[in-house]
């Protein structure tokens, strides 16, 4: 069963995207790849209704040599609309299997995680927050949260290349270096979103990619 689950989820490792709008339009699909100082992940999700999405997610924790293969629902709990702004509050979570990788001999475990995401943006300003608590059994548990601010130096119209300059501060209390800073550039055009950054504190690259269709 677990091997079958991995087989289903494996292709998502070769796809990519970011948590910009983790719930899409009705009937929409989204592919999201994220890679930060600790882990790399891929999520493919489908949006049956504008209030929630359901997806399959694979995450590889490079520090602790395990992977999580999970079913990942996201709920848009609240969206605030304004003429010039939009705000969102999401709950996200997942349940699946944690499994050793890179020679890690530990047996498979059930893994669960959950957290919130919130963002507020205009066409030139962005603020966001996300948190997650993960329990992966004997692979360990983990809490992290991160805040991000961004500024778009120009306002592109539909179909234009949109450029954002952002700064993310993340806090992982259990890590040797708990607080780090990552400046990044977000490029946005049509269904594609690409984020490239570099964690200045621990010298790790950040690469996020989203494709919506």
């Amino acid at each position: 069963m677990r091997g079958y689950l991995r087989l289903i989820l494996l292709p998502s490792l070769f796809c990519s995207a970011v948590t910009a709008r983790p719930v899409s339009y009705t009937g929409g699909w989204t592919i999201i790849e994220e890679s930060d100082r600790q882990s790399s992940s891929a999520l493919v999700h489908y949006t049956p209704a504008p209030s929630w999405s359901i997806g399959l997610r694979t995450e590889v924790n490079r520090d602790n040599d395990y992977a999580i293969y999970s079913v990942h629902p996201t709920l848009l709990a609240k969206r605030w609309f304004g003429k010039d702004y939009q705000g969102n509050l999401y709950f996200h979570g997942g349940i699946g299997v944690a499994s050793g990788v890179y020679g890690n001999p530990l047996r498979d475990e059930t893994a669960v995680y959950g957290g919130i995401m919130a963002d507020w943006e205009t066409r030139s300003l962005f603020a966001g927050y996300r948190s997650r608590y993960l329990d992966a059994g004997h692979f360990g548990d983990q809490f992290m949260h991160a805040a991000r601010v961004g500024y778009a130096p120009y306002e592109g119209d539909s179909g234009d290349l949109h450029t954002w300059l952002m700064l993310e501060i993340d806090h992982r209390p259990a890590e040797e270096v708990p607080i780090t800073a990552t400046p990044l550039v977000r490029l946005f055009k049509g269904p594609l979103l690409l984020e490239v950054g570099y964690n200045l504190t621990v010298n790790q690259p950040l690469l996020n990619f989203t494709y919506r269709f």
């Binding site: 910009a20 709008r21 899409s24 009705t26 009937g27 304004g82 066409r123 306002e155 269904p191 979103l193």
Partner: peptide, 30 residues
């Protein structure tokens, strides 16, 4: 309300362009 990015425009383009009553659709972020 709340149209601030290309994903917003994409979502509406996708939904509205499926309708046979609609000959042309364009979301203007400006």
């Amino acid at each position: 309300m709340g149209v601030v990015c290309d994903f917003c425009a994409l979502a509406m383009n996708k939904i509205f362009s499926k309708r046979e009553e609609i000959a042309a659709v364009y979301v203007d972020l400006d």
